Simulated scan of single mutants.
Amino acid sequence: MSTLLISDLHLHPGAPAITEGFLAWLDRRARGAEALYILGDFFEAWIGDDLLDLGEADPTGNAALARRIAGALKARADDGTAIYLMHGNRDFLLGERFADEAGARLLPDPSVVTLGDERVLLMHGDSLCTRDEAYMAFRSRARDPQWQAQILAMPIPERLALAKQLRDQSGEANSNKAEDIMDVTPDEVVEALREHGVTTLIHGHTHRPAVHQLELDGTPARRIVLGDWQPDRGWEIEVAPGQAPVLRDVALAG
């Protein structure tokens, strides 16, 4: 039984092809998997678990999407696949209620888990992008429980509007940033590996899928980066028993 890892699907009602592709992938690839790790930015935005209470009349389509995705994950969990959800920079308000309805467990960022015979560090990846000082300031605020409580106390329409505003601001800001600023800081990668006593790091966030060979205090190490999903293709890492992690792009069938 293999373990699968994915990241950065950015599911939202305006991208139905990605949703259909993921659901087909979940049925085809994750059926029978030992575990599935979703390393953040599963949703393009998440305004709070009370979104699940909205009826079919929800004009945005977010509630229906959330319930459909939760149901599909729960079906895999009921079949015996352990499902883990990590917060990303887009869906940091994902809570225990959604996780329960999806048959999943929330996974702290960072986390060290055993994949195959190896201890591996899992992260979303945004905390490694320390050269982007403006984003790091926002990240610090967005992870503050008091700030989150204030956001969750707002009416749902206001939260939806705020999420759109933040996405628009992020897109505009990123268009003016140098490419290297939005990538991970190499020294942060080395420090994270050293701090957690591992030689393999898996993350998403940067949308730059690759396997990077490193050296950590004279020992070979690696950083494996998951890619983001598009209407026709996604990215996965598979860890089969006794084998090293394999990064691959997969064709999606909606």
Rank of each mutant, 00 (worst) to 15 (best):
T114N: 10
A64G: 08
R90F: 09
L65G: 08
G40K: 01
G103E: 06
E44F: 04
A24Y: 12
D78Q: 14
L39I: 06
L36V: 05
V112Q: 09
A35G: 06
F98P: 02
D53E: 15
N89R: 06
D41T: 01
L54G: 14
I69Y: 12
A64L: 11
D78M: 06
A57Q: 15
Y37L: 08
A72K: 03
L106N: 12
L39Y: 04
L39R: 02
S111W: 09
R90A: 06
A57F: 14
G61R: 13
D41N: 09
E20S: 13
D78T: 14
S111N: 10
A66P: 03
L39W: 07
L26H: 03
A24T: 12
E56H: 15
G48A: 09
D49H: 10
D79R: 13
I18V: 13
T60N: 12
N62C: 12
S111Q: 05
L73P: 00
W46N: 04
D49Y: 07
D50C: 07
G80Y: 14
A35Q: 07
D50S: 15
R31H: 15
G88T: 00
G48M: 04
A82P: 00
G95V: 05
D41M: 02
G32S: 03
F22I: 07
A70P: 09
T60W: 06
E20Y: 03
A24W: 13
R68H: 13
R29E: 04
I69L: 12
A75C: 13
